[in-house]
């Protein structure tokens, strides 16, 4: 993938605020079309990266491009993108329609696109109500409607589901999925990994301002380990079984009421045999696959360990 064919491309992008390293030598490319997740915990540097992409803050060093145009010339790509940055920033004293009208005037667009985007986000019926009367979910949807003005090729959405209830999250997820299917590139940041896992095909993981992974979500999940969860019928048998499994050189961890065993180096049949031979009856024996969240935690732990050893 070249910078020209990428929707977004950054190369050694760095931002320091004084001594604080918000983003450190970040390098990744994301393809055009579809939904791409930009994932990391709070404070990972997602918003700072997005602000650099949009020309709101200047990079300390490194380069980047959006739709083939350098990020230090945002006027070259601004008409092709739409953005929502962190919390929905809106004019609460204006109506939903007037908020959109303001941005159509600023972008030199025809006002008839207002009803179109209001319909897309399901806010047409509330168009003439002041934004101050909107729920958080409605404000998020209005902010997305603003980002949709002018039929942008690329949407950059920073935490669009922040503060929403489960129903609101599902609503936004479906909306983003629909936009991705309609040929747009949606670059969506979130600290909710489980949410991103259900939505994206491509993912960029960052932590402490550094890249952890960039690529297809499927490739990342292939790295997911298996865990065998064992729950004895009698709680007292947990420590006994833990010792027995330990003697067999298995990697064992005890959680509140069960034992977790690394499933990549051990078979569940072997675990069942050891328990059975020792007269331990099992209430549960289950093979679990790591979630994106588990993989992320494992990878970031590895990154910290590598950083320490360096």
């Amino acid at each position: 993938m070249t910078a020209e064919s990428s929707a977004i491309s950054v190369d050694n992008l760095t931002k320091h605020f004084g001594d604080f390293k918000a983003v450190e030598k970040l390098t990744f490319d994301i393809p055009q079309n579809g939904v791409v997740g930009f994932v990391g915990p709070n404070g990972a540097g997602k918003s700072t990266t997005i602000r650099m992409l949009l020309g709101l803050i200047k990079a300390t060093s490194g380069t980047g491009s959006v739709l083939g145009h350098p990020i230090n010339k945002p006027s070259a790509f601004t008409k092709k993108i739409g953005a929502l940055i962190e919390s929905p920033a809106l004019y609460k004293g204006l109506t939903g329609a007037d908020n959109l009208r303001l941005f159509t005037k600023l972008r030199g667009l025809n006002a008839n696109v207002i009803d179109e985007v209001l319909n897309t986000v399901g806010l047409y019926d509330r168009r003439d109500d002041r934004v101050a009367t909107y729920s958080l979910g409605m404000k998020q949807r209005l902010a997305i409607a603003i980002s949709l003005l002018g039929e942008p090729e690329l949407l950059i959405l920073d935490e669009p589901t922040n503060g929403l209830d489960p129903a609101g999250i599902i609503e936004i997820r479906e909306l983003l999925r629909k936009l991705g299917q309609n040929g747009k590139t949606v670059f969506v940041s979130s600290h909710l990994l489980s949410e991103i896992e259900r939505l994206v095909e491509h993912v960029v993981l960052i932590n402490d301002g550094r890249l952890v992974f960039s690529g297809q979500l499927d490739d990342l999940l292939l790295q997911a380990s298996h865990i065998i969860r064992v729950r004895p019928e009698n709680h007292e048998d947990i420590s006994k079984l833990q010792k027995l499994l330990g003697h067999e050189d298995m990697e064992v961890e005890v959680s509140t009421d069960s034992i977790l065993i690394d499933g990549n180096s051990t078979s569940s049949v072997e675990v069942d045999r050891i328990a059975h031979q020792s007269g331990i009856f099992l209430r549960e024996l289950r093979i679990e696959k790591e979630t994106l969240e588990d993989v992320f935690i494992r990878l970031t732990r590895k990154q910290v360990t590598q950083g320490d050893s360096n």
């Binding site: 709101l56 945002p74 920033a89």
Partner: peptide, 14 residues
């Protein structure tokens, strides 16, 4: 204070 400056600048970066 509202953060609308961000959206204004994304729409008109000049």
């Amino acid at each position: 204070s509202n953060g609308t400056i961000r959206l204004l600048l994304v729409s008109e970066p000049r």
